[in-house]
Design a protein around this nucleic acid. Structure first.
Lengths: 210, 210
DNA sequence: AACACTATGTTAATTATATAACAATCTTGA
DNA sequence: TCAAGATTGTTATATAATTAACATAGTGTT
């Protein structure tokens, strides 16, 4: 990585947004953009755009602005979307299925290589061409395959058991849809939480107070 | 609301987390907790706990701590989870279906009263007892029913058309799973975004850089 | 080639958020 | 009932994030 080594989480969380808007501009065949214009489109300040981008290097040119296609590619690389991280999905319920079917993993740096569920009824069914395996096969699968990350779409009470297994196989990166606090159990893990009900509660609060 | 009128978004986004942990403690029949202990469990500082809670009032007692059940109820009320906001779901694809089936809306202050999709194949099917209606019936439904919020689980390109309709009926609160920038079109709306791909990209970045 | 203009990269100022400190107050047990 | 201990509510300090300012460097037109 080009400049600093400890980019703040606030900046990191904005990167996908930059990437999205730049992709749109690129699709519209717009080839240059100034921080001011980009800021207008994204509803942020031009200062923030320039500061954010400069965390990673000087991608612009004074008097001209930024090349849309180049900047888009730069951010793509910064995010590491060209990776091919091997992922497994734990939990083939509604949410797990939706995640597996809905996401364009290959465009996001991942490849989904297996799904597991402990419900006999789901075992054997197919999700996006992947046959759901029984959770009892998890250990064996982990032994035989390289796995970079696990997507947890199971109820909170089921997490601990599965997590211990995964961790014992050296899996330390998690996309976590449950309310289980993974970091509290293993503090050397990298966890990205998606708490849908938290998000909805936040909406509720704001509806009450605006 | 008891104290200040403009609580920062940072605090608001932590409230569901307090609520979750307090609910757990309550389920374990623990009846009192100090800010220090709660902070330990939640992996934050005791100062933050006390500051956060004091945005809404003095729920604790010096020398004693906080009553778990009382504090839980207070936060529940602050979040407004006793509400019965009427919600409609737009988009009965994988994600929409998962959201509808997965969430405990009534515990979160909402009631899902209808689902819409523009795909003839989905129209007529049932999700959690709710029959999916054709999107052509949306206008009529909005005329005949009170609706507080809409959950958007449709592709970006489909949003503008639907959004214009919903907005014209006075619906201004959105739980938005698409990448459409609702606030850019209508700036007097209240939008809670859930960007799953942004979240996954963030995980990707962090996997690369740790 | 020179000049007016544009827009970056970067440093400085401001604002927001998080942590620490502590006085005031309640609890509890002798 | 009183004193020792505990823990809050709140104010003060420190850190982080955002915004503003501006000097510097490249653009493009005449």
């Amino acid at each position: 990585m080009s400049k600093s080594d400890s980019i703040s989480m606030s900046v990191i969380r904005r990167l996908p947004r930059y990437y999205r808007f730049l992709s749109e501009l690129n699709d519209q065949n717009i080839d240059k953009i100034s921080s001011t214009k980009l800021a207008q489109i994204m509803n942020v300040t031009a200062s923030q755009v320039r500061q954010d981008l400069n965390c990673f290097g000087g991608f612009g040119q004074q008097g001209y602005g930024y090349s849309v296609s180049q900047l888009k590619e730069e951010i793509k690389n910064i995010l590491g979307l060209n990776n091919d991280y091997k992922a497994i999905l734990i939990g083939a319920g509604n949410l797990g299925k939706a995640v597996a079917m809905h996401m364009n993993f290959e465009k996001l740096g991942f490849e989904l290589i297996a799904c597991f569920d402990n419900n006999e009824q789901k075992v054997g069914t197919k999700i996006n061409g992947i046959t759901v395996k029984n959770e009892t096969e998890l250990d064996d699968f982990c032994n035989k395959n390289h796995i970079d990350t696990a997507f947890l779409c199971i109820p909170r009470v089921c997490v601990e058991n599965v997590l211990d297994k995964l961790y014992s196989h050296g899996i330390k990166n998690y996309w976590n849809f449950s309310h289980y606090d993974i970091n509290a159990r293993y503090n050397d893990t990298l966890v990205e939480n998606v708490h849908l009900s938290d998000s909805l509660m936040t909406l509720c609060y704001r509806m009450n107070n605006n």
